[in-house]
């Protein structure tokens, strides 16, 4: 695993909160993305992401360095998010308002000179968030993990507690569903 992560973890295990603060600074955005991708709700994502780090801090003594720190951290994030999602039935997403900007950032370079493609992408972003909302938390989790980190199926399987084959079939299913929903916008 990343040596500096492991060093920070060991300092945390000796009660060094500043070391933990460094780990939070390093990973909070990624964790937030994972949680947001699954929950699709900003305030909830903020709460749950903070809770992820709190739980990590509380159980850091149990982390033995067998896997990468972020794998361990993402597993907590995914489990908490899925658990939260199952307990809390949310209405439609509130993320659409940021879609324009997000899509600009994501595709700005490639479609800067193509207003039609720009418009299409914005529409796509909005539809995508709505379509993801219709997936089950398990399917959302795999597609988000893959989109954010490009994690291997093996890593994702480890985080979700399932086999690589299951990851592959969930991803395939989730992507197929998204393509069905987004058909004309892709």
């Amino acid at each position: 695993m990343d040596l500096s992560d492991w060093e920070l973890v060991q300092r945390c295990q000796n009660g060094d909160v500043a070391a933990f603060q460094e780990l939070v600074a390093k990973y909070y955005r990624k964790v937030y993305m994972v949680v947001l991708g699954i929950l699709n709700h900003r305030d909830d994502a903020m709460e749950v992401a903070q809770e992820v780090f709190f739980r990590a801090y509380r159980s850091i003594q149990g982390f033995k360095g067998g896997s990468a720190f972020y794998t361990w951290l993402y597993r907590i994030a995914v489990n908490l998010s899925i658990d939260f999602q199952r307990r809390q039935k949310r209405g439609p997403t509130e993320l659409r308002e940021t879609m324009d900007e997000a899509v600009d950032n994501a595709e700005g370079a490639s479609s800067a000179n193509d207003p039609f493609l720009d418009l299409q992408s914005k529409e796509l972003g909005q539809r995508l968030v709505a379509a993801i909302n219709e997936l089950t938390p398990d399917h959302r989790a795999v597609i988000v993990m893959r989109a954010i980190e490009g994690l291997s199926y093996k890593d994702i399987g480890r985080m979700l507690g399932c086999s690589e084959g299951t990851v592959m079939s969930r991803l395939h299913y989730a992507r197929k569903k998204l393509q069905e929903k987004l058909g004309p916008y892709l």
Partner: peptide, 22 residues
């Protein structure tokens, strides 16, 4: 699909400041 999804999440995450989070 993958690019747009990453873009949406990255944009959202970039708005979360460290201090209030910490």
């Amino acid at each position: 699909v993958q690019v747009v999804l990453s873009g949406v999440l990255e944009t959202e995450a970039s708005r979360v400041a460290f201090e209030p989070f910490w």
